[in-house]
């Protein structure tokens, strides 16, 4: 019963947060629409969505990693690496599109496996390993392209990033589908429920028979593969691959997950929350563009939003913990009262 109560309570807190997030997002949209009058047009909404969709896809993978109590900073350079690799394979090595994409995705998941293996092997904070990979891979990206961009794709490949199905851009459809599938899996599938155990207490999870190492490596592979998918589509969208693409994308992905209510120390978070976080970031970014404020402010605001979001998620986690303690205490009081009778 205690568990049921606790779940109800924590769900309530989360729902309140979601409603707050949706309200703020809508308020921003409507406020800018009223002031500037060019926000809620089809063209602008498309720009709005396309601006954040690649970070959004990375944020989906980041959600899994953060729930597990990890962090993956390397997504930004995996994304750029995927762009460059798929471009080089097609343009310089002459591979057919499908083969190039397949090889790229396999290479990206191998990078994820490398992340996971090093983290499991060295038992240091994932921050350091993924930062090392971020740096190494960015250096490699720079070195293999000499700082130039790679372009000259076929029209069929460009369709992946620029094409539309039923009037919706393909990357957005991919984001929606991936979010739906991963969301359902995360909420219901046994394998992904393990992530919450690991994030809540790794030692306890290990002792109760979860093969923590294997799950960790798999999840880092998932995160890197999603970043790879984003990279392939980004190459198609921009029509060129460049090593500096996706700089600071990891920051936006983490911010989206934190704004979506995940506990940054692991143990909680949902795909729905992350999607809301991504939409929120996209709307704020768009507000900067439409209001013609100096776009340099955007870095300042995205940093501030990360700090606010993380403080908020920390605050909610503390409140949940306190409520849990209170429940425990009242339960114990009840038991004591029963014993006295």
């Amino acid at each position: 019963m205690m568990n049921g109560l606790f779940h109800g309570l924590s769900r309530n807190v989360i729902v309140v947060q979601y409603i707050g997030l949706v309200t703020v997002t809508l308020a921003t949209l409507i406020g800018f629409q009223v002031t500037f009058g060019n926000v809620l047009t089809g063209a602008n909404l498309e720009v709005l969505a396309m601006n954040m969709v690649f970070e959004g896809i990375m944020a989906l993978g980041m959600t899994f990693v953060i729930i597990m109590g990890g962090i993956d900073l390397s997504v930004a350079s995996v994304y750029a690496f995927a762009e460059i690799l798929v471009a080089k394979l097609m343009v310089q090595a002459g591979f057919p599109i499908a083969a190039a994409i397949l090889i790229t995705l396999i290479a990206c998941s191998c990078l994820g496996a490398l992340n996971g293996t090093l983290i499991v092997l060295f038992r240091v904070h994932p921050l350091i390993i993924t930062m090392g990979i971020l740096l190494t891979l960015r250096g490699i990206n720079l070195a293999i392209t000499d700082g130039h961009s790679v372009s000259g794709f076929s029209d069929e490949f460009l369709f992946l990033g620029q094409g539309k199905v039923f009037g919706v851009n393909l990357p957005i459809i991919f984001f929606g589908l991936a979010a739906a599938i991963l969301g359902v899996l995360l909420a219901n599938h046994r394998y992904f429920r393990q992530l919450y155990f690991i994030g809540g207490g790794e030692r306890a999870a290990r002792l109760s028979g979860v093969s923590v190492s294997r799950v960790k490596i798999t999840i880092y592979m998932l995160s890197a593969s999603l970043a790879g998918c984003a990279g392939v589509m980004a190459a198609a969208k921009y029509g060129a691959a460049h090593w500096a693409h996706g700089n600071l994308a990891e920051l936006k992905a983490i911010a989206a997950v934190a704004i979506g209510g995940a506990n940054i120390n692991g143990g909680s978070g949902t795909i729905a929350g992350t999607v809301l976080g991504v939409i929120f970031l996209a709307v704020v970014h768009n507000a900067f563009v439409t209001s013609a404020v100096n776009p340099f402010w955007y870095d300042v605001v995205s940093g501030l939003m990360l700090l606010v979001a993380v403080s908020l998620s920390r605050f909610i986690a503390l409140r949940n913990a306190r409520a849990m303690l209170g429940l425990k205490q009242s339960k114990m009081d009840q038991l004591a009262a029963i014993h006295q009778h």
Binding site: I71, L127, L248, L251, I254, A258, I264, N265, N294, F296, W297, Y298, D299, V300, V301, S302, G303, L304, L306, L307, V310, S311, R314, L318
Partner: peptide, 26 residues
């Protein structure tokens, strides 16, 4: 605040760089 140091300083990294770019316009 009890927030993980790397998140705090990651946020500060973005804020400070952004401010420096804003006041100089790069």
């Amino acid at each position: 605040g009890g927030i993980l140091p790397f998140l705090v300083t990651l946020g500060m990294m973005s804020v400070a760089r952004g401010l420096a770019t804003v006041v100089t316009t790069g």
